[in-house]
Amino acid sequence: MKNLKLFVLLLSVGLMSYSCKNDDDGGSSSGSGVVIYGDTEIQLKSGVIMDYGEYMDGIYNFDITLVDTQVRTVDGYPFPTEDVFSGVYFELFTSNVSDLQVGTYSFGSADAGGYEYAEVYINATIEQDEGISINSGSFSVLDNGSSYELEFEGTTSDGTAFSGSFSGPLRAYDFSDEFGRPAEEGASKPRLFFR
């Protein structure tokens, strides 16, 4: 896991702060969709898009998380509203500085139009959020902006096929200034949702 210790620290601080203050902006991130993982069907209710800024020259990193629960904001960071959640996560790369470009992103590359890291989550918790790694597939952005239309499919590391779609707004988070840009060789960022 990338930077798990930093995530645990951020989560602990977030949860302690939440007990004192919840700065949820109340904005809606409700949408609809589905993930089919083998014989399991997950009804998606909301999602987030996290802007991590420039990954390397002209390549920008946006992470998408889609879950079967609503999402709340605690001290500027996204958290699921339910203790147990399921969904999908994709770390995507684009040449567009402001949003994911419409088009299909292929697994196996950190170049524009690709992704190297993604996971499926089945009955995960913040404390135990082990996902099932995705090792092939595609992620399509059919529409972006105030509302997104997304489709995805592939295979996980355990050989299980998955597919799905999502339509609706995504709650946006800008972390582009928090982790430095461009990324240093071999550098990784903490995942603030699911990690």
Rank of each mutant, 00 (worst) to 15 (best):
Y89T: 08
M16Q: 12
S188H: 11
A110Q: 14
S176M: 07
V35C: 10
Y148N: 09
E116C: 13
F107K: 01
F139A: 02
S136K: 07
G38C: 03
D83T: 09
L4H: 06
F152Q: 10
E185R: 12
E185M: 04
M1T: 12
G47H: 09
G186S: 04
M50I: 15
G27P: 02
V35L: 15
G168I: 09
Y117A: 15
D143N: 11
S86D: 03
I59C: 12
N96E: 02
V35S: 02
A124G: 11
F166W: 09
S28V: 10
K21T: 12
F162Y: 10
C20S: 07
G137P: 08
V48M: 05
E130H: 01
S106K: 07
S30N: 04
D63I: 06
A110T: 10
E151W: 07
Y148P: 12
T40I: 15
V35H: 01
I64T: 01
E130R: 14
F194S: 07
S86M: 06
D111K: 04
T94G: 04
L11N: 14
G154A: 01
G53P: 04
F166K: 10
T65D: 04
G53M: 13
Y173C: 06
L15D: 00
M1D: 15
F90K: 02
D143H: 11
Y121T: 00
G26T: 07
L66C: 09
G31R: 01
R171F: 11
L170Y: 13
A118G: 15
D75A: 14
D174G: 09
K5P: 01
T155V: 14
I59F: 11
T155H: 04
M56A: 15
T81M: 10
Y89Q: 03
I126F: 04
G14W: 00
F107Y: 14
S167Q: 11
V71C: 04
A183R: 14
R181N: 15
I122C: 05
A187L: 12
Y105W: 03
S19T: 15
T40M: 04
S147R: 15
D24T: 02
L10E: 09
D111G: 04
D57E: 10
E82M: 08
E185A: 13
S86K: 00
L4R: 14
G47Q: 02
G47L: 00
G137W: 03
D23H: 09
E149R: 15
T160R: 02
L9C: 08
Y121G: 00
P190L: 00
L100W: 06
E41P: 01
F7K: 07
T155E: 14
F193H: 02
G58M: 05
I59Y: 08
S46C: 03
S167V: 14
F166G: 10
G53F: 02
N135K: 01
K5Y: 01
F107M: 01
T104P: 12
S29W: 00
S30K: 15
D143V: 06
S109W: 15
N96H: 13
L92F: 13
G26W: 06
F93A: 01
S29D: 02
S147G: 06
N123C: 04
P78V: 02
Y173Q: 01
E119I: 03
S86N: 02
S146A: 14
N3K: 13
V102W: 13
M16H: 09
